[in-house]
Amino acid sequence: MSTTTQPVGAPPSPAPPSAAPARASSQGGRRRRGGPGGRALGLGVVGLWLSLMVLLPLAALTVRSFDDGLSGFWAAVTAPAALAALEVTLGVSVVVALVNAVMGTLVAWVLVRDEFPGQRVVNALIDLPFALPTIVASIVLLSLYGPNSPIGVHLNATRWGLGVALAFVTLPFVVRSVQPVLIELDREVEEAAASLGASNTTIFRRVVLPSLAPAVISGTGLAFARAVGEYGSVVLIGGNIPRETQVVSQYIQQQIEIDSPAAAAAVSVALLSVSFLTLFVLRVWATLSQRREASTA
């Protein structure tokens, strides 16, 4: 989890333990605890727990999304209102992810490279969106940007409102993934580049950015995956106007309310595919870039 608060300037958290000792320990463990019977029981309990809680619901969802056959599934996903909701969701999520990429990196930069009074408070504030319940995020934003806005900004039931809500709940992703990399970054390379006459823009583009890029991209991807499925924070400020501000999760809820569960299941499967695909691409890309780094090092 990335919800841990990392003090400014603190050394990066220790690397995750390598797989090697784990493998060795599982060998020793086999000799240790109970008989094979107890272990089989434990594995059975784990299997049953994960199946009952996670796998079976998702299996039921997938199977029942085809209740009306493949054509029924396709019709549900390509219904004009469903497509419109998908379009709104993906569009706003992409924009929010990009805003996060820029502003998140900037905030991380200011938290690591700058020094000003109150910096620790600002740093602690970053985790707030993760700790705050999503419905509270919705209410909090409404109190400033809603119908009774004290500053006269009314984002209620607009795509701007959606964007602000999503930017709020996804704020920590990029900041918290870039910050540790920035702390670790070797500043001597930057100084060498400067002494060779490189301008700040060049240094940032050629030296800093390439090192930060993997963290920025992974944070942005996680923010995007979170944004496409978000519900609680947009439910009050979004307005749920079909084809305007209705996001996919709201459309799915509507399908359950008008009693068309197969359509709800089908669109849910589509939404799940988007999040899974995003996370899958991120993981593959991370593995590939790690391998590339290992081969050049």
Binding site: S26, G29, R30, R39, G42, L43, V46, L50, V54, L55, P57, L58, A60, L61, R64, T134, A225, V228, G229, E230, Y231, G232, V248, S249, Q250, I252, Q253, I256, P261, A264, A265, S268, L271, L272, S275, F276, L279
Partner: peptide, 30 residues
């Protein structure tokens, strides 16, 4: 322990993080 299909089990444990809350609700209804 020696867990069969360890990679799959690890992925299943992480799965709830990737599922939209509304989709969780729909799955449970299904």
């Amino acid at each position: 322990w020696r867990v069969p299909f360890r990679g799959v089990v690890q992925a299943v444990v992480d799965l709830p993080f990737a599922v939209s809350p509304i989709v969780v609700g729909v799955s449970l209804i299904m």
